[in-house]
Design a protein around this nucleic acid. Structure first.
Lengths: 181, 181
DNA sequence: TTAAACTTTCAATAATTTTTGAAAATACAG
DNA sequence: CTGTATTTTCAAAAATTATTGAAAGTTTAA
């Protein structure tokens, strides 16, 4: 497992990105490596390519599996465990969204709902209450929206994305032909 | 500055959330506090409410200003600096999106483009090349898309969000009346 | 000016997170 | 079974990040 300079800087960059996105540096690097590598890799190969210890690779692989971003790929005649990325780049991005929703957004919505259920009558904190409701509603919309993205065909999804600077126009069209919602 | 238990747990939770989103715990707490507090607060009040040191508050306020999430609000007759959230919850969410795009996505797109410009002929790494291109294209779409959201009126934005499980239907309508893109 | 009121800086310290690697656990071929 | 190959665990060490608070810096009133 030797990486060209180019690929190495790609992998390092995604390590840094990962550390800003709730997964740590080496986990980000392992994922980047598996994404750009067509053939499955085993823990030793990953450790060598990234210069990280065996234990660290093991933990990283476990975490990436818990995020459903990589999957084992058995190689007949070899006892080692091999891994590949769990899908194309689009699929991986959707998976990250879904996992983060489950891990962060859902629990937050639950907390906010609980807060809103208590103290319905405290007039003193009415402003705070309303803000908490705003956040709650925003997160709920994000949840619905992301659920919708999940269930779309990759093709329609790409089409939706490609609309780019046309989203509001689409809304106008919708209003015109289907009436306001 | 005394917080009720409810509000306190809200603030603590958003501190934890912040730490998963690239801003640290206390910075998240300060923002949460300013969001739910209608009147402007000064550094001492914030420090007392959250039990953090004066220096830490100062740094947190500076960081939140660099994210454009809070703004100073002068109080006549008082020499202290007071701060309020820079807008409603929706606006704040859009601002976070935009800042993260500028800080993380844009530099990544630049890096990927540079990588793609080099080695156009290395056939050995063709698979990796294609993956890097996929990521590049995805990030570019996210950029366009988020630019579009930025420029939408809050009202249309809410409407778009509320579509929720109707996005693909809207796409169908668009196809029907405007032709495929 | 000066002095008081306030804010920022930053080196030292504390807290947290990541990494290592040896030992324990597991899987499997013979 | 037994022994070897492999993976996982986890306590200790290293690295990173956050926090404090005293000192330096800034602003303003008089």
């Amino acid at each position: 497992m030797e990486l060209s300079d180019n690929l190495h800087s790609f992998v390092l960059h995604f390590g840094e990105m990962g550390s800003r996105w709730g997964i740590n540096r080496t986990v980000g690097q392992i994922l980047a490596l598996l994404v750009i590598h067509e053939e499955p890799l085993n823990a030793d190969q990953i450790g060598t390519a990234l210069s990280i210890s065996r234990g660290n690779v093991s933990m990283g692989l476990k975490e990436l599996q818990s995020w459903r971003l990589i999957k084992p790929q058995h190689i007949p005649g070899d006892r080692k465990d091999y891994f590949i990325a769990a899908g194309d780049v689009w699929t991986l991005a959707l998976t990250v969204m879904e996992e983060r929703r489950k891990r962060e957004v859902d629990p937050t919505i639950t907390l906010l709902r609980d807060l809103l259920l208590k103290d319905t009558n405290s007039t003193k904190e009415e402003y705070a209450r309303q803000k908490i409701r705003d956040i709650h509603d925003l997160l709920e919309m994000i949840t619905d929206w992301s659920g919708e993205l999940q269930s779309m065909e990759p093709a329609s999804l790409k089409r939706l994305m490609k609309l780019g600077s046309g989203v509001s126009k689409v809304l106008d069209v919708k209003d015109k032909f289907l009436g306001k919602t």
